[in-house]
Amino acid sequence: MDVKRPLVWLPLAGFLLVAIVVAVALYAPADRTVRSAMIGQPLPAFNLRPIVSTKPGVASDAMKGHGPRLLNIFASWCVPCIAEAPQLMRLRQAGVRIDAVAIRDTGPAVAGFLRRNGDPYAAIGDDPSSAVQLSLGSSGVPETFLIDGQGIVRRQWVGDIRADQVDEVLAAVRDVQ
């Protein structure tokens, strides 16, 4: 077999190339960002009744034409939501408007939850069958969406917002403004 000299190094070169790519992949930090299909999309149309008498409900139309806000998906029966409450209070104190959707919940239970854990919410809608939650592409509680002034979804955080994430959320809200 008449093998040309440079050609015999080709298998080795090919293998080294693969090895380099694999080594990079091995040490690249795993990407855990949630790539929501909702990002860049307008909110789906919904209009939820209030769940507690002291606050209005939540409607998608009402979110257009105002400043950015967070939409928090939560439930009084959800333990991570209790852990998240102090962070939401800090965001509220920093001037962020937070609306909420209560999932499969009751008025008295939500009122009790707010009494115990603080109340950062401007409005809370009642989603007794998770219909709105599902239309938002959310699969659990808590989750938080950042909605801009045009009613477009900008970010999604899955799981409770941790203390070290508050600055990140604040920065994201300011970016949208």
């Binding site: 093998v3 000299r5 015999v8 298998p11 080795l12 090895a19 694999v22 091995l26």
Partner: peptide, 20 residues
């Protein structure tokens, strides 16, 4: 990966050197 580099890389290099 280090083992692979040693074995496969080594064998392919030996091949390139000796196949002539």
């Amino acid at each position: 990966l280090a083992l692979l580099l040693l074995y496969i890389g080594g064998a392919l290099a030996l091949f390139a050197l000796r196949v002539g």
